[in-house]
Design a protein around this nucleic acid. Structure first.
Length: 205
DNA sequence: AGTGCGATTGACT
DNA sequence: GTCAATCGCACTA
């Protein structure tokens, strides 16, 4: 558990997409970049499951979303709002469109590199949010479709330390399937982008 | 061929 | 809290 991350194998990844999203909390995302290694602890994810009306695969496969239909453990990188990229890990198996959006990282290695790319002072602002995460890690459509479980510059690693309690809530910023609780996060972790506790009757008043 | 909008962010009131 | 930025894609026709 403790120590440098080792590459996750595809057989380590749960086939079920919601289970995968939960599984990835505490794991490591590593980018072996020309400028140096950048890595971070995954602290927030969202599952976009089979048949999910909020998922990009809902209307079937297109050139844009085809990576979601690859075997689990591939990167799906999309471009949104004209300025941001976001990284997903494909789920399920070949031909099934589902994936996990990586929403926030706790920076581990290459902190100064990522800080420089983002132009921020505070460590918590480096990768808190999917667009910031991709920007900090220099991830764009060039990485769309690559296998995160094979030798390559971008990969998933094991947890580097014990994982805290994992919370679950509704997903952020979607207009459909809003009742589903498919967002996962390490509770009380300052690097999480949104609410760090499920809403309760008390807290929403 | 034209239109509307999105799994967001940062600047501003 | 509000809102513009800015692009590709799905959808309509």
């Amino acid at each position: 558990m403790d120590g440098p991350p080792h590459r996750l194998r595809r057989t380590d990844l749960p086939a079920d997409t919601a289970t995968l999203a939960r599984f990835l909390i505490g794991k490591t995302l590593v980018h072996d970049h020309p400028a140096g290694r950048m890595s971070g602890r995954i602290v927030e994810t969202e599952a976009y499951v089979v048949g999910d009306a909020a998922g990009h695969a809902f209307r079937g496969q297109t050139p844009r979303n085809r990576s979601l239909f690859l075997e689990r453990g591939h990167a799906y990188v999309y471009f949104i709002y004209g300025c941001w990229h976001a990284l997903n890990v494909s789920g399920e198996s070949v031909g099934i469109g589902a994936g996990v959006l990586l929403r926030a990282l706790e920076p581990l290695e290459g902190v100064e590199l990522m800080q420089g790319r983002r132009g921020v002072e505070r460590c918590v602002d480096i990768a808190r949010g999917p667009g910031r995460l991709a920007s900090a890690m220099d991830i764009d459509r060039r990485y769309d479709g690559i296998d995160l479980c094979r030798r390559g510059p971008l990969w998933l690693g094991s947890a580097t330390r014990a994982v805290g309690r994992v919370g679950c809530s509704a997903r952020i910023g979607i207009s459909r399937e809003i009742e589903r609780k498919l967002r996962f996060f390490e509770r009380d972790n300052a690097f999480v982008s949104g609410p760090r506790r499920p809403r309760t009757a008390r807290s929403s008043r």
